[in-house]
Amino acid sequence: MNRIWAILLLLALAGVALVLLAGRSPFTLVPVFAATLFKSRLIVLDFMGFRNASFALRHGLVAWALALSLAAVGKLLITGMIAS
């Protein structure tokens, strides 16, 4: 559990540092959303204890995070196209 917590903190710190140092662009935000998905997966599987749970429980909550991340990446693409 302690290792999972350390990984989650490192991912959160890396995401914030990346955006603060490199700015908001699709190149920095796509890795941030990938890290968000990985964090969500760790919370669901390890903090909530669903690693051995049914398929629906294991994947339902991560699917919610995945849907939002895809929507956010979609927004990035649309606003990028409008701007160019």
């Binding site: 995401g15 955006v19 908001r24 935000l29 941030v32 959303f33 968000t36 964090k39 969500s40 919370i43 669901v44 903090f47 909530m48 909550l61 919610w64 995070a65 939002l68 991340s69 956010a72 927004k75 990035l76």
Partner: peptide, 21 residues
Amino acid sequence: TTLWHVIDLIWVSMFPIVYLV
């Protein structure tokens, strides 16, 4: 604790959407 983790999960997804995108 299950509800608390859901609140956590919501924040983890909310943070990049509200602050970064």
